[in-house]
Computed example of a mutant assay.
Amino acid sequence: MLDQLPRLPAQELTLDDYRADFLQNFWKSDITWKLERQVTFKEPASASWVAMAEGDWDKSLRLAEELRAGRHEHQRELDRKGITQRRVRFVCDPPTPYLQWELHLLVIWAQLGEQIRVLPTAAASPRETQGTLPEVLVLGHDSANPVMYDIQYENGVLAGARKFTEPDLIKICRHEIMTYWEQGEDLLRYFPQKIAHLPPPAPQGV
């Protein structure tokens, strides 16, 4: 069902609307499930990403580490409210420059409490008969009003989302994400074996 989401009717949200809607629903959820399939994006609003793209890897990693304190406070609030965050991140070997950069950030998130597992992109193939899996975020498991977003990008940059609220559809998609989760490898085990030793990625341009 995940691969069919782009062809199903949904509420179209601009970037500002998506951010507002997400914040309204996120803090009411008990658990979040995020599926990341694409291996290249652009994050011009992130100083760490910009430094990576410009070829200053040391600066990029330093700026990423400076995010730890704020993320720690975010995790403390999640813990206080009883919200669990789980993420399935598809990876390729060798990683793209974006993926190499993002995994350095995600390992910080994982060290602080987000539960992240990785899977090779080949594991997505059985469900990609109608196209590459979308980027999906599900808010809520036991919630009476779950929400699901098919996150949209333009030229690799976050542009908005398509919102779904139909419980049965969300249940099916959540189950598919959970199946990937069960197959995945913990990021904190994967990272030192596959990512930590790699040389700096090539400059990408901003």
Score class of each variant (00 low, 15 high):
Leu2Pro: 02
Ala10Leu: 10
Leu13Gly: 03
Asp21Leu: 04
Trp27Glu: 03
Ser29Gly: 11
Thr32Glu: 12
Lys34His: 11
Gln38Glu: 10
Val39Glu: 12
Thr40Trp: 10
Asp56Met: 08
Trp57Arg: 08
Ser60Lys: 02
Ser60Gly: 01
Arg62Ile: 06
Leu67Ala: 10
Arg68Pro: 04
Arg68Phe: 05
His74Ser: 14
Arg76Phe: 09
Arg80Tyr: 07
Arg80Met: 01
Gly82Pro: 08
Gly82Thr: 00
Phe90Lys: 02
Phe90Tyr: 05
Val91His: 08
Asp93Val: 05
Pro94Val: 03
Leu99Gly: 10
Trp101Cys: 00
Glu102Val: 01
Val107Phe: 06
Leu112Asn: 02
Glu114Ser: 02
Gln115Ser: 12
Val118Cys: 03
Pro120Arg: 04
Ala123Val: 07
Ala123Arg: 07
Arg127Gly: 12
Glu128Trp: 02
Thr129Gly: 06
Leu133Glu: 04
Pro134Ala: 07
Glu135His: 03
His141Met: 09
Ser143Cys: 01
Pro146Met: 13
Tyr149Lys: 05
Asp150Gln: 10
Glu154Met: 14
Asn155Ile: 08
Gly156Pro: 00
Gly156Tyr: 00
Leu158Trp: 01
Phe164Asn: 09
Phe164Asp: 14
Cys173Ala: 14
Glu176Cys: 11
Ile177Pro: 05
Trp181Pro: 01
Leu188Tyr: 05
Leu188Ser: 05
Phe191His: 09
Pro192Asn: 14
Leu198Ala: 13
Pro201Ile: 09
Pro201Gln: 15
